[in-house]
Design a protein around this nucleic acid. Structure first.
Lengths: 260, 260
DNA sequence: GTCGGGTGCTGGTCTGACCAGCGAGCGGCT
DNA sequence: AGCCGCTCGCTGGTCAGACCAGCACCCGAC
């Protein structure tokens, strides 16, 4: 009886757990299930889908790995439907960089164009509140100048997050987060020279200040150019000539200057 | 006995299946496990990790959803380690667009900068073979002019894939694929007017021809500009004025013109 | 009225079973 | 001796049932 059900289900729609994953996934995509909603408990899902609890659990593990839901032990309300975030994208990207499928020049080049357009858009859309947040972040970074590079980098990332927030551009934000995070990962694993780090920090602070001015003035093109120029300055020495020339072209493309 | 082991394991590293997922994941990231390698069979993994088969299976389902491994029924060689691809990123992005978390203007704006830089890089790196492939694709698209829009779009996508290939930039290729695919999804669901479609097709062909010339000449900036200009032409009418102005700025940023 | 314990729910884990299907090895038949 | 066919053992897929820890509720005792 149950066997027959299992067989035919497998035949009809591949794996048993797949049926449930696909169903939940499409219901989330369709907006039928919204963040904050609750799925039925595992034992209720067993009844609903007519599959065994182990299959339900496999489905839940998959949905969890996609960051679509989260189960909490002993929560009578059932698995929670999560807001869709960049987390799975960042995770995949992290794997790509960790496995050296993606290397520094590619990351930096992509970051040049993404950061640039983020700045461009943020210059149009930023509110006074964003400017305040940026100023506060800059003050914080000045205070962290002599702390660890990791700590400083975190604040650096935050600066860009605020800009991404100001741009109000969800997709660019997600991609930007992922790329910046990956760049940082790679840099921290490869560039360790203490003097370099100090120079990086100082340049970061100067750069952020310039970007702030441009965004504050509503000068998008300038903010965009600054992003490309400074990324060139930071990383040009760490890539081979071929990639360096591409980076230079990306700078020139928007009217920027490459002075080494 | 086994209970104690299970408990302590859970306490030591959260979920039992997590231990296995993290281990396999890091071994793939480290290059310890390479594409084409085989994992031990489920029952061997049970012994190796000291967890129950159900937990092993949960771990395998997660690893499968990340496209890191694939299990085949009745395969005595065990789960296959896959090459790392963009598939999970595209899947996540597809969900973001399907759930309307990401909307057309954002996609198009991101595509403008990604396609542009792809073209820029491809103009430097393309080989004669790429040019041949592009010409062949253009011929095919001319032949598809009066076929379905879906069919035409597929060839359109292929044109960009060839360019991404020529750019030899894996990350840009992945992101570009994901974004272009998502744009197409959205467009096919929203823009249905037959005359529009015909106009789109003709413009696509003209545009591809111009891009081909630029890439063939090695004129990266021109190829980049063309990408932004044509995306503006295609989609400017389908977004609100605010987003249209941002698109216009993205075009002007690289010296392009907005006349449409 | 308050406090205590039972009771029932949750998710997390384990065990043991069965199925279909493939392949290897062994036995019987020619 | 050589070939054919069956059986057995392996695989992954699925299911059923059990136990645990911990939380929350309810009900009864004080």
């Amino acid at each position: 009886m149950t066997d027959t059900a299992g067989r035919s289900a497998a035949a009809a729609s591949d794996r048993a757990y797949r049926r449930m994953v696909d169903d939940i996934e499409s219901r989330i995509a369709a907006g039928d299930l919204r963040p904050g909603d609750r799925l039925p408990s595992e034992r209720e899902l067993v009844e609903h889908y007519g599959i065994a609890r182990s299959s339900v659990r496999e489905a839940l593990r998959v949905l969890e790995s996609l960051e679509l839901v989260r189960s909490a032990p002993r929560d009578p309300r059932g698995p929670l439907v999560l807001p869709i975030t960049s987390a799975p994208i960042r995770r995949s990207l992290g794997l790509l960089t960790a496995s050296r499928t993606i290397v520094l020049p590619e990351l930096v080049q992509l970051r040049m164009v993404i950061d640039a357009s983020t700045n461009l858009i943020a210059a149009r859309r930023r509110t006074p509140a964003h400017l305040v947040a940026l100023e506060r972040n800059m003050a914080r970074m000045r205070g962290l100048l002599h702390r660890s590079y990791a700590e400083f980098s975190l604040a650096d990332l935050e600066f860009h997050e605020i800009i991404a927030d100001a741009a109000g551009h969800e997709l660019v934000r997600l991609y930007g987060e992922a790329v910046r995070e990956a760049v940082l990962d790679l840099i921290q694993r490869t560039i360790l020279d203490a003097d370099d780090q100090e120079a990086h920090k100082l340049r970061s602070i100067r750069h952020h200040s310039a970007v702030f001015d441009a965004i504050s003035d509503g000068d998008g093109p300038a903010a965009s150019r600054l992003a490309r120029e400074s990324l060139y300055q930071y990383y040009a020495d760490h890539v081979d000539p071929e990639d360096r020339e591409i980076m230079a072209e990306l700078v020139r493309e928007c009217g920027g200057r490459v002075d080494g």
